[in-house]
Protein backbone atom coordinates (compact mmCIF):
# COMPACT_ATOMS: atom_id res chain seq x y z
CA UNK A 1 0.00 0.00 0.00
CA UNK A 2 1.26 3.44 -0.88
CA UNK A 3 2.16 5.54 2.17
CA UNK A 4 2.68 9.29 2.47
CA UNK A 5 5.15 11.31 4.53
CA UNK A 6 5.10 15.06 5.12
CA UNK A 7 8.49 16.74 5.56
CA UNK A 8 9.37 20.16 6.99
CA UNK A 9 12.63 21.96 6.15
CA UNK A 10 13.71 25.11 7.99
CA UNK A 11 17.47 24.91 8.62
CA UNK A 12 18.46 28.26 7.10
CA UNK A 13 16.85 30.70 4.65
CA UNK A 14 14.26 28.27 3.28
CA UNK A 15 11.01 27.21 4.89
CA UNK A 16 9.55 24.36 2.88
CA UNK A 17 6.98 21.62 3.23
CA UNK A 18 6.72 18.59 0.98
CA UNK A 19 4.66 15.45 0.73
CA UNK A 20 6.20 12.37 -0.86
CA UNK A 21 4.95 8.85 -1.38
CA UNK A 22 6.67 5.63 -0.34
CA UNK A 23 7.31 5.03 -4.04
CA UNK A 24 9.45 8.13 -4.33
CA UNK A 25 6.92 10.45 -5.94
CA UNK A 26 7.31 14.07 -4.88
CA UNK A 27 3.68 15.19 -4.69
CA UNK A 28 4.39 18.72 -3.51
CA UNK A 29 7.36 20.87 -2.54
CA UNK A 30 6.19 24.32 -1.47
CA UNK A 31 8.64 26.86 -0.16
CA UNK A 32 9.26 30.39 0.94
CA UNK A 33 12.80 31.78 0.90
CA UNK A 34 13.91 34.55 3.25
CA UNK A 35 15.77 37.24 1.34
CA UNK A 36 18.50 39.07 3.24
CA UNK A 37 18.91 42.81 2.61
CA UNK A 38 21.47 43.70 -0.09
CA UNK A 39 25.06 43.45 1.05
CA UNK A 40 24.27 41.34 4.12
CA UNK A 41 23.83 37.70 5.04
CA UNK A 42 21.11 35.72 6.79
CA UNK A 43 20.15 37.14 10.15
CA UNK A 44 18.95 34.03 12.02
CA UNK A 45 16.24 35.79 13.99
CA UNK A 46 14.94 37.74 10.99
CA UNK A 47 14.89 34.53 8.96
CA UNK A 48 12.94 32.71 11.68
CA UNK A 49 10.36 35.55 11.78
CA UNK A 50 9.98 35.21 8.03
CA UNK A 51 9.48 31.43 8.45
CA UNK A 52 6.84 31.95 11.12
CA UNK A 53 4.97 34.37 8.88
CA UNK A 54 5.04 32.11 5.83
CA UNK A 55 4.58 28.70 7.52
CA UNK A 56 0.74 28.50 7.38
CA UNK A 57 0.58 29.37 3.68
CA UNK A 58 3.46 27.08 2.72
CA UNK A 59 1.93 24.18 4.65
CA UNK A 60 -1.50 24.75 3.14
CA UNK A 61 -0.04 24.94 -0.38
CA UNK A 62 1.93 21.72 0.11
CA UNK A 63 -1.13 19.82 1.33
CA UNK A 64 -3.37 21.23 -1.37
CA UNK A 65 -0.95 20.57 -4.25
CA UNK A 66 -0.31 17.00 -3.14
CA UNK A 67 -4.05 16.16 -3.11
CA UNK A 68 -3.28 13.85 -0.19
CA UNK A 69 -5.85 14.21 2.63
CA UNK A 70 -4.05 14.97 5.91
CA UNK A 71 -5.63 11.86 7.42
CA UNK A 72 -3.60 9.70 5.03
CA UNK A 73 -0.22 10.99 6.18
CA UNK A 74 1.72 8.15 7.85
CA UNK A 75 4.49 10.21 9.45
CA UNK A 76 5.77 13.76 9.82
CA UNK A 77 9.49 14.35 9.28
CA UNK A 78 11.46 17.48 10.15
CA UNK A 79 15.01 18.74 9.79
CA UNK A 80 16.38 18.38 13.31
CA UNK A 81 19.69 19.94 12.24
CA UNK A 82 22.28 21.07 11.48
CA UNK A 83 21.36 24.69 10.96
CA UNK A 84 20.45 28.00 12.56
CA UNK A 85 18.75 27.55 15.94
CA UNK A 86 15.89 30.04 15.57
CA UNK A 87 15.08 28.71 12.08
CA UNK A 88 15.24 25.05 13.11
CA UNK A 89 12.82 25.70 15.99
CA UNK A 90 10.13 27.00 13.62
CA UNK A 91 10.17 23.75 11.62
CA UNK A 92 10.29 21.80 14.88
CA UNK A 93 7.16 23.49 16.21
CA UNK A 94 5.24 22.98 12.96
CA UNK A 95 6.25 19.29 12.79
CA UNK A 96 5.50 18.54 16.45
CA UNK A 97 2.12 20.19 16.21
CA UNK A 98 1.19 18.29 13.07
CA UNK A 99 2.39 14.94 14.40
CA UNK A 100 0.46 15.43 17.63
CA UNK A 101 -2.67 16.54 15.83
CA UNK A 102 -2.55 13.75 13.24
CA UNK A 103 -1.40 11.22 15.87
CA UNK A 104 1.39 9.93 13.64
CA UNK A 105 5.09 9.26 14.34
CA UNK A 106 7.56 12.14 14.28
CA UNK A 107 10.78 11.44 12.36
CA UNK A 108 13.95 13.54 12.85
CA UNK A 109 16.05 13.95 9.70
CA UNK A 110 19.61 15.16 9.29
CA UNK A 111 19.48 17.92 6.68
CA UNK A 112 22.75 16.87 4.97
CA UNK A 113 21.70 13.22 4.76
CA UNK A 114 18.47 14.59 3.27
CA UNK A 115 20.36 16.32 0.43
CA UNK A 116 22.18 13.07 -0.36
CA UNK A 117 19.23 10.67 -0.20
CA UNK A 118 16.99 12.94 -2.30
CA UNK A 119 19.89 13.29 -4.78
CA UNK A 120 20.12 9.50 -5.03
CA UNK A 121 16.37 9.21 -5.58
CA UNK A 122 16.37 11.81 -8.36
CA UNK A 123 19.60 10.85 -10.15
CA UNK A 124 19.22 7.10 -9.73
CA UNK A 125 22.71 6.82 -8.23
CA UNK A 126 23.20 3.87 -5.90
CA UNK A 127 26.53 4.29 -4.13
CA UNK A 128 28.14 7.56 -5.20
CA UNK A 129 31.00 9.66 -3.96
CA UNK A 130 29.01 12.77 -3.02
CA UNK A 131 30.09 16.38 -3.25
CA UNK A 132 27.77 18.31 -0.94
CA UNK A 133 28.21 22.01 -1.64
CA UNK A 134 25.96 24.68 -0.17
CA UNK A 135 25.98 27.61 2.19
CA UNK A 136 26.23 25.25 5.14
CA UNK A 137 28.38 22.45 3.77
CA UNK A 138 31.39 21.64 1.66
CA UNK A 139 32.04 17.95 2.13
CA UNK A 140 33.12 14.93 0.13
CA UNK A 141 31.14 11.97 1.38
CA UNK A 142 30.78 8.28 0.70
CA UNK A 143 28.83 5.50 2.36
CA UNK A 144 30.54 2.77 4.33
CA UNK A 145 29.95 0.86 7.52
CA UNK A 146 26.31 1.89 7.88
CA UNK A 147 26.81 5.63 7.71
CA UNK A 148 27.64 8.42 5.30
CA UNK A 149 31.30 9.20 6.00
CA UNK A 150 33.23 12.38 5.43
CA UNK A 151 36.32 11.81 3.27
CA UNK A 152 37.20 15.45 2.87
CA UNK A 153 35.81 18.86 3.67
CA UNK A 154 36.53 22.55 3.87
CA UNK A 155 38.68 23.46 6.83
CA UNK A 156 37.11 26.88 7.08
CA UNK A 157 34.46 28.51 4.83
CA UNK A 158 31.97 26.54 2.78
CA UNK A 159 31.85 27.02 -0.97
CA UNK A 160 28.49 28.79 -0.60
CA UNK A 161 29.93 31.16 1.99
CA UNK A 162 32.90 31.91 -0.25
CA UNK A 163 30.60 32.91 -3.12
CA UNK A 164 28.14 34.76 -0.86
CA UNK A 165 30.81 36.72 0.98
CA UNK A 166 32.49 37.72 -2.27
CA UNK A 167 29.14 38.76 -3.72
CA UNK A 168 28.20 40.72 -0.61
CA UNK A 169 31.55 42.50 -0.69
CA UNK A 170 30.46 43.64 -4.15
CA UNK A 171 27.09 44.81 -2.73
CA UNK A 172 24.89 41.89 -3.73
CA UNK A 173 22.40 40.08 -1.46
CA UNK A 174 22.85 36.41 -0.48
CA UNK A 175 22.65 33.94 -2.09
CA UNK A 176 25.09 35.22 -4.71
CA UNK A 177 26.03 32.02 -6.56
CA UNK A 178 23.83 32.72 -9.57
CA UNK A 179 25.07 36.31 -9.95
CA UNK A 180 28.71 35.18 -9.76
CA UNK A 181 28.12 32.41 -12.29
CA UNK A 182 26.62 34.92 -14.70
CA UNK A 183 29.34 37.51 -14.09
CA UNK A 184 32.03 34.87 -14.66
CA UNK A 185 30.95 34.23 -18.24
CA UNK A 186 33.58 35.71 -20.51
CA UNK A 187 35.79 36.76 -17.59
CA UNK A 188 39.57 36.50 -17.62
CA UNK A 189 41.81 34.44 -15.34
CA UNK A 190 43.88 36.01 -12.56
CA UNK A 191 46.04 33.99 -10.23
CA UNK A 192 44.47 33.27 -6.82
CA UNK A 193 45.58 31.01 -3.94
CA UNK A 194 44.86 27.32 -4.55
CA UNK A 195 44.72 25.54 -1.19
CA UNK A 196 44.35 21.77 -1.18
CA UNK A 197 45.53 20.13 2.03
CA UNK A 198 45.41 16.38 1.61
CA UNK A 199 41.71 15.57 1.19
CA UNK A 200 40.63 18.95 2.44
CA UNK A 201 40.33 22.44 1.03
CA UNK A 202 40.62 25.89 2.55
CA UNK A 203 38.85 28.92 1.11
CA UNK A 204 39.72 31.68 3.59
CA UNK A 205 42.90 32.78 1.78
CA UNK A 206 41.08 32.68 -1.53
CA UNK A 207 38.29 34.91 -0.18
CA UNK A 208 40.72 37.48 1.22
CA UNK A 209 42.75 37.56 -2.00
CA UNK A 210 39.70 37.92 -4.20
CA UNK A 211 38.25 40.76 -2.10
CA UNK A 212 41.62 42.50 -2.24
CA UNK A 213 41.69 42.00 -6.01
CA UNK A 214 38.20 43.49 -6.31
CA UNK A 215 39.19 46.46 -4.13
CA UNK A 216 42.27 46.94 -6.31
CA UNK A 217 40.12 47.62 -9.35
CA UNK A 218 39.94 44.23 -11.05
CA UNK A 219 36.50 43.82 -12.62
CA UNK A 220 33.84 41.76 -10.81
CA UNK A 221 33.68 39.70 -14.00
CA UNK A 222 37.34 38.69 -13.86
CA UNK A 223 37.31 38.10 -10.12
CA UNK A 224 34.15 35.97 -10.39
CA UNK A 225 35.68 33.91 -13.19
CA UNK A 226 38.96 33.41 -11.33
CA UNK A 227 37.29 32.52 -8.05
CA UNK A 228 35.06 29.95 -9.76
CA UNK A 229 37.93 28.39 -11.70
CA UNK A 230 40.14 28.18 -8.62
CA UNK A 231 37.60 27.08 -6.01
CA UNK A 232 35.81 24.58 -8.26
CA UNK A 233 39.12 23.03 -9.37
CA UNK A 234 39.99 22.59 -5.68
CA UNK A 235 36.77 20.74 -4.85
CA UNK A 236 37.00 18.72 -8.08
CA UNK A 237 40.53 17.69 -7.13
CA UNK A 238 39.60 16.50 -3.64
CA UNK A 239 36.53 14.73 -5.00
CA UNK A 240 38.77 13.01 -7.54
CA UNK A 241 41.04 11.93 -4.71
CA UNK A 242 38.07 10.39 -2.88
CA UNK A 243 36.91 8.71 -6.09
CA UNK A 244 40.34 7.19 -6.76
CA UNK A 245 40.69 6.22 -3.10
CA UNK A 246 37.33 4.47 -2.76
CA UNK A 247 37.23 3.07 -6.31
CA UNK A 248 33.52 3.92 -6.55
CA UNK A 249 31.85 4.28 -9.95
CA UNK A 250 29.52 7.24 -9.41
CA UNK A 251 29.90 10.91 -8.54
CA UNK A 252 26.98 13.09 -7.48
CA UNK A 253 26.76 16.81 -6.67
CA UNK A 254 24.07 17.97 -4.25
CA UNK A 255 23.36 21.19 -2.34
CA UNK A 256 22.68 24.73 -3.54
CA UNK A 257 25.96 25.11 -5.48
CA UNK A 258 25.09 21.96 -7.50
CA UNK A 259 23.09 24.34 -9.69
CA UNK A 260 26.32 25.87 -11.01
CA UNK A 261 26.96 24.66 -14.58
CA UNK A 262 30.71 25.30 -14.57
CA UNK A 263 31.12 23.18 -11.43
CA UNK A 264 29.13 20.35 -12.91
CA UNK A 265 31.09 20.59 -16.17
CA UNK A 266 34.41 20.28 -14.31
CA UNK A 267 33.11 17.38 -12.25
CA UNK A 268 31.90 15.59 -15.39
CA UNK A 269 35.37 15.86 -16.97
CA UNK A 270 36.94 14.66 -13.72
CA UNK A 271 34.60 11.65 -13.40
CA UNK A 272 35.18 10.75 -17.04
CA UNK A 273 38.90 10.30 -16.40
CA UNK A 274 37.96 7.46 -14.05
CA UNK A 275 35.09 6.14 -16.18
CA UNK A 276 32.68 7.07 -13.41
CA UNK A 277 29.14 8.36 -13.97
CA UNK A 278 28.43 11.90 -12.83
CA UNK A 279 25.11 13.60 -12.04
CA UNK A 280 23.94 16.75 -10.33
CA UNK A 281 20.78 17.01 -8.33
CA UNK A 282 18.15 18.69 -10.58
CA UNK A 283 17.98 22.46 -10.18
CA UNK A 284 14.57 22.49 -8.51
CA UNK A 285 15.76 20.16 -5.74
CA UNK A 286 19.46 21.02 -5.40
CA UNK A 287 18.85 23.77 -2.87
CA UNK A 288 17.16 23.33 0.51
CA UNK A 289 13.65 21.91 0.23
CA UNK A 290 11.02 19.93 2.09
CA UNK A 291 11.33 16.99 -0.31
CA UNK A 292 14.80 16.08 1.02
CA UNK A 293 13.32 15.84 4.51
CA UNK A 294 10.11 14.06 3.49
CA UNK A 295 11.90 11.42 1.39
CA UNK A 296 14.63 10.74 3.95
CA UNK A 297 11.91 10.79 6.59
CA UNK A 298 10.17 7.99 4.70
CA UNK A 299 13.43 5.99 4.52
CA UNK A 300 14.02 6.42 8.24
CA UNK A 301 10.40 5.76 9.20
CA UNK A 302 10.26 2.62 7.07
CA UNK A 303 13.29 1.26 8.90
CA UNK A 304 11.70 2.00 12.25
CA UNK A 305 13.24 5.24 13.42
CA UNK A 306 11.02 7.88 14.99
CA UNK A 307 10.90 9.70 18.30
CA UNK A 308 8.33 10.72 20.91
CA UNK A 309 7.22 14.34 20.58
CA UNK A 310 8.90 15.34 23.86
CA UNK A 311 12.31 14.31 22.42
CA UNK A 312 11.88 16.40 19.31
CA UNK A 313 14.57 18.97 19.97
CA UNK A 314 16.77 20.68 17.42
CA UNK A 315 20.50 20.14 16.96
CA UNK A 316 22.37 23.10 15.50
CA UNK A 317 25.54 21.02 15.29
CA UNK A 318 24.83 17.55 13.98
CA UNK A 319 27.36 16.09 11.59
CA UNK A 320 26.00 13.57 9.14
CA UNK A 321 28.73 11.06 9.98
CA UNK A 322 27.10 10.22 13.31
CA UNK A 323 23.75 9.31 11.71
CA UNK A 324 22.96 5.61 11.24
CA UNK A 325 21.35 4.75 7.91
CA UNK A 326 19.60 1.40 8.46
CA UNK A 327 17.70 1.80 5.16
CA UNK A 328 20.98 1.34 3.30
CA UNK A 329 21.97 -2.00 4.84
Amino acid sequence: MKRFVLGVESTAHTFSVSIVSSEGEILSNSKSVYKAPEGSGIHPFEASQSHIASAPAVLAAAVETSKVPLGEISAVAYAMGPGLGPCLRVGGVVARTLAAKLEVPLVPVNHAVGHIELGCLLTGMKDPVVLLVSGGHTMIISHSGGRWRVLGESLDLTLGQLLDQLGRHHGLASPCGRAIEEAAMGGGYRRLPYAVKGNDVSFSGLLTASKTMLDGGTSFKDVSYSVQETAFAMVAEVTERALAFTGKREVMIVGGVAANRRLSEMMTVMAGRHSAAMASSPLEYSGDCGAQIAWTGWLAYSSGSWIPVQDAKVRQSWRLDVVDTPWRS
Binding site: S142, G145, V150, L151
Partner: peptide, 17 residues
Protein backbone atom coordinates in the same frame (compact mmCIF):
# COMPACT_ATOMS: atom_id res chain seq x y z
CA UNK B 1 48.36 18.22 13.44
CA UNK B 2 46.92 18.60 9.92
CA UNK B 3 48.89 15.47 8.95
CA UNK B 4 47.38 13.51 11.83
CA UNK B 5 43.93 14.88 11.10
CA UNK B 6 44.09 13.52 7.57
CA UNK B 7 45.11 10.08 8.84
CA UNK B 8 42.19 10.17 11.25
CA UNK B 9 39.78 11.40 8.59
CA UNK B 10 40.86 8.60 6.24
CA UNK B 11 40.62 5.91 8.91
CA UNK B 12 37.22 7.02 10.17
CA UNK B 13 35.91 7.73 6.68
CA UNK B 14 37.25 4.72 4.79
CA UNK B 15 38.01 2.07 7.40
CA UNK B 16 35.38 2.72 10.09
CA UNK B 17 35.47 -0.82 11.48
Amino acid sequence: AVDLRLIKETLVGAHPG
